[in-house]
C-alpha cells in the first residue's frame, strides 16, 4: 500500500507564456513533475490573455491579481481573499516588477500561513543593475564598467571614459548599442522616455552569452546551478532554444554569488564570456528565468527544491546535471471559448 502523499497548494505568477515569456508555466511544470506531493496549482494572472490561464494541465484555478502599482495593501487583500478559498501553502512570484511588493509582504503572508522563499530587500537591491558595478567590485566579480547618469549632458564625458561602442541601458529593461555620441544621445532620449531616469551607460563586452539558472538556500549555499547557452535568439533577445553546458567557471560564479549575498531563492546570472576568456556578470535577474524547465530536464528540479525549502525542509544540493540537454520552445494555437475568457476577464477567476 502506498503512503498517502502530502497535499500542497502552490500559487504562481508569470503565466504569460508568450514570445517574451514569464517563467510561471515552466515553474509549474517543474512542481508538477515532482512526485513528493499531490499539488494543486493556483495561477495568479494580471491579464486575461495570459496563455497559462487556459493551458491544459497547468493551473487548477486562476485568479486575477492587481498590478504591482496598486501597492502592497491591495495585493495583500486580494491574496488574503484567494487564501481563504484555497489555503495556499507556498507562493512563488516570478516577475521582477512584483518582487519588491512580495518581499515586503512576505512576513504578513507568513503570518497567515503562506510561505515564500525570497531574497531580502537588501539582497534584491544590491544586484539591481544600477548597483551592479559596485556589487562586482565589492565581491570580486568581473562586471562591465558603467556610469549611471540622469542627464544627456553627462554623455560626452562618460563616452570619452568608456569608449565606443558602448551600451545605453534603461532602468528596468532594454539596451541599445551606440557607436557614436549621436547614437548614444538618441538612445538616452528613447530609453528615458520609456523607463525614466537614471540611464546606465556601460562598457561594451564582446563575447559569448551564457546564462546560469541557480537556487540559493539563504545561508550562503547553492542548491542548484545549471549553465545554458542560447542557441536561437528571438528579435526580442529571448532564448528560443538552448543547451546545457559543462564549464565549472560558471558553476563557481553561482556558488560565489550565493556565498557573497546569502541569496534566498531562484535567480539567473547573465554572463558574457569575453573573447579573452573573462566571465563578466552582465545582469542578475532576481527570480527563475523562463527557461527554468531545462534545469528539470537536466536533472535539477529547481522549482520543486524551492517549494521544499519554502516549506521549511532541508534540501541537499544537487551535484550533477545532464550536459548537452536542449530545450526548444514552440508556439501553439490554443482554442478556447468566449465563456472561459469571460470568466477571467469579468469575474477575475477561472
Amino acid at each position: 500500500m502506498n503512503a498517502k502523499k502530502r497535499q500542497l497548494t502552490v500559487a504562481v505568477t508569470g503565466l504569460n507564456a508568450i514570445d517574451s515569456p514569464g517563467p510561471g508555466v515552466a515553474v509549474i511544470r517543474g512542481i508538477r513533475d515532482c512526485a513528493d506531493w499531490d499539488v494543486r496549482i493556483i495561477g495568479l494572472s494580471y491579464e486575461s490573455l495570459e496563455p497559462g490561464i487556459y493551458m491544459e494541465g497547468v493551473c487548477d484555478k486562476v485568479y486575477q491579481i492587481p498590478y504591482p502599482a496598486a501597492g502592497t495593501e491591495a495585493i495583500f487583500n486580494r491574496i488574503e481573499y484567494i487564501h481563504e478559498k484555497e489555503s495556499i501553502d507556498v507562493l512563488i512570484p516570478n516577475f521582477d516588477a512584483e518582487l519588491y511588493n512580495f518581499i515586503k509582504l512576505s512576513p504578513k503572508l507568513e503570518e497567515i500561513g503562506i510561505h515564500t522563499f525570497l531574497p531580502t530587500t537588501a539582497q534584491f537591491e544590491a544586484r539591481d543593475k544600477i548597483n551592479l558595478f559596485e556589487f562586482g567590485k565589492k565581491h570580486g566579480f568581473y562586471v562591465p564598467k558603467q556610469v549611471v547618469i540622469y542627464s544627456v549632458s553627462e554623455l560626452p564625458k562618460v563616452a570619452e571614459e568608456l569608449g565606443y561602442p558602448l551600451v545605453v541601458k534603461g532602468k528596468f529593461y532594454d539596451a541599445i548599442i551606440a557607436q557614436t555620441l549621436e547614437q548614444a544621445q538618441k538612445a538616452f532620449h528613447k530609453l528615458s522616455a520609456k523607463w525614466g531616469t537614471p540611464i546606465i551607460v556601460q562598457e561594451f563586452i564582446n563575447g559569448t552569452e551564457i546564462n546560469v539558472a541557480a537556487l540559493g538556500d539563504g545561508k550562503g549555499g547553492t542548491i542548484s546551478a545549471v549553465p545554458m547557452r542560447k542557441m536561437y535568439i528571438t528579435d526580442k533577445g529571448k532564448a528560443w532554444a538552448g543547451i546545457t553546458l559543462e564549464d565549472d567557471r560558471f558553476l563557481e560564479m553561482a556558488r560565489k554569488f550565493c556565498k557573497a549575498t546569502k541569496w534566498r531563492g531562484g535567480y539567473e546570472l547573465e554572463i558574457m564570456l569575453s573573447i579573452d576568456g573573462k566571465p563578466y556578470i552582465m545582469e542578475v535577474n532576481p527570480r527563475f528565468p523562463a527557461w527554468i524547465y531545462l534545469t528539470v530536464g537536466a536533472g535539477q528540479n529547481q522549482p520543486a527544491a524551492l517549494v521544499k525549502m519554502a516549506m521549511g525542509h532541508d534540501v541537499k544540493p544537487y551535484d550533477k546535471y545532464a550536459i548537452g540537454k536542449l530545450f526548444i520552445r514552440y508556439s501553439w494555437d490554443l482554442i478556447t471559448d468566449i465563456e472561459d475568457f469571460q470568466k477571467i476577464s469579468a469575474f477575475g477567476e477561472y
Binding site: M231, G242, L245, E246, D247, G324
Partner: peptide, 14 residues
C-alpha cells in the same frame, strides 16, 4: 563528445 557518425559536441561552448 564525438559520435561514430562524425557529430561533434563541445560541452563547454555548446
Amino acid at each position: 563528445a564525438v559520435s561514430e557518425t562524425g557529430f561533434i559536441f563541445n560541452p563547454t561552448s555548446g
